[in-house]
Amino acid sequence: MENKNVFEETVATLIEDAKKLQAKFSKCQENNNFTEALSCMRLLKDTLALIKEYDWELKYSELETTTGKQLKIWEQNHCGEIRNLKEYQTYDSTDKKNVWIEKFESCIANRQSYICTYGDECRGTGKSYALASLCHKYNGIVVSETTNGSFGIKNNCKQFGFNVPICNYRYVLSMRQVKNKILFLDECSGLSNEQIDKLKESHIVIGFKLT
């Protein structure tokens, strides 16, 4: 705490010095004292550099989700500027709290497709983890037409060691060996409602779509 106070006091002093130098610089310009103005400019530049170096405080936030915690760490200065923002998602050791896993597993057991319209209420609920883990568990396929359409699933696969194939719409329709595979969609898959309905004709389709 003492170190924090020292930094805060130092930054406050530097800011006051910068204000004085700025005022002095303006006055020197008005008086055509360019030599003194140049000297003030150099001092102001050095002072601002020191402020920029020391006026950053480490911030931390923690948000409870249905599957664990969402952690954010960043640096912020007195102006509210943010740098080095990093986000982490932690998950509970059990999948019982993940409502999507329970819902999707129930549908799979009953041989039913389930597509949920994605909204803000889905954020931070572990949906991508549910899709990745179940696709891995049931040896399914993620269907995506866009490069970033399975971004959340890919991140979870990398974090938890899941191994899932990602294929496009035409490939799934044309390949016989994937006929009985369960298909998983994230909300940015790029598939139209008509394409999703077509997949449902010969597959169990689980996941999300945009409105």
Rank of each mutant, 00 (worst) to 15 (best):
T94L: 01
S93K: 14
C122I: 03
T94W: 00
I101M: 08
C116G: 02
S113I: 09
Y114I: 13
Y118H: 14
D95Q: 06
I115P: 01
R123H: 13
N110I: 08
N98L: 05
A109V: 08
I101L: 13
C116D: 12
E105V: 04
E121Y: 09
D120E: 04
K96A: 14
S93N: 14
Y114C: 04
G119F: 05
S106H: 12
D120P: 12
Y114F: 05
R123T: 10
R111S: 02
F104V: 08
V99S: 14
I108E: 03
R111V: 02
S113P: 05
T117L: 07
K103N: 07
I108H: 03
C107Y: 12
D95R: 07
T94K: 04
I108P: 06
N110R: 15
A109T: 05
K103Q: 04
K96N: 11
K96E: 12
T94A: 07
S113G: 03
C122A: 12
E121N: 15
S113W: 08
K97D: 11
N98S: 08
I115Q: 03
E121C: 09
Y114H: 12
S93R: 12
G119C: 11
D120S: 14
F104P: 05
K103R: 09
R111I: 03
A109Q: 08
I108L: 06
K96C: 08
N110P: 01
N110H: 10
E105N: 10
I115N: 03
S113F: 02
S106K: 08
Y118V: 05
S113E: 02
E102C: 00
Q112V: 04
I108T: 04
E105T: 07
K97V: 00
S106Y: 10
S93E: 13
V99N: 10
F104N: 07
Q112P: 00
I101W: 02
T94S: 15
T94I: 09
S93C: 02
S106T: 01
W100H: 13
K103W: 00
W100V: 05
I108S: 05
N98F: 01
I108Q: 11
G119Y: 00
E105C: 11
F104Y: 15
R111H: 02
S113N: 06
I115G: 03
N110F: 07
Y114M: 04
C116P: 01
Y114P: 00
N110Q: 14
Q112I: 05
D95G: 04
D120I: 10
W100E: 08
R111P: 00
I108K: 06
I115W: 10
E102G: 05
S113K: 13
C107I: 04
S106R: 10
T117I: 11
Y118A: 01
Q112E: 11
N110D: 10
R123P: 00
N98Q: 10
